[in-house]
């Protein structure tokens, strides 16, 4: 698998990271290096091996259906660059 300049630009756009045009070839080559390493792992035969999702033998922790949180509008909004009337205020986004 090889990442070209266009793919690198697309990935950057999807991640909402601004990359200047002249920096794209370098970024693409870094992607290729990472993918190349990962492709090596593909050489290992894992037939019949269950994918490992965790290193600790733990069951997914669950919660009861009880309201234990919330009621902290001020704290929730305290980091917002702009908040009005209890809402986060953001530049207009209309479909």
């Amino acid at each position: 698998m090889s990442i070209d300049k266009e793919t690198a630009a697309k990935v950057a756009k999807l991640a909402r990271i601004k990359v200047e045009d002249e920096d794209l070839p370098a970024l693409a080559s870094e992607f290729n290096a990472v993918l190349g390493f990962i492709e090596q792992l593909g050489e290992v035969d894992v037939t019949g091996v269950e994918p490992m999702v965790s290193v600790t033998p733990m069951r997914l922790k669950r919660r009861e259906d009880v309201v234990t949180d919330g009621g902290q509008q001020e704290k929730v909004l305290s980091n917002a660059p702009d908040a009005r009337e209890g809402f986060f205020a953001v530049p207009k986004v209309v479909e």
Partner: peptide
């Protein structure tokens, strides 16, 4: 009563951003 991954209420029509963990 509570959300899928948090303990905040699911009540409709509450003060904005008050049912937020």
């Amino acid at each position: 009563k509570a959300k899928l991954f948090s303990g905040a209420s699911t009540q409709f029509g509450a003060e904005p951003n008050s049912n937020v963990a």
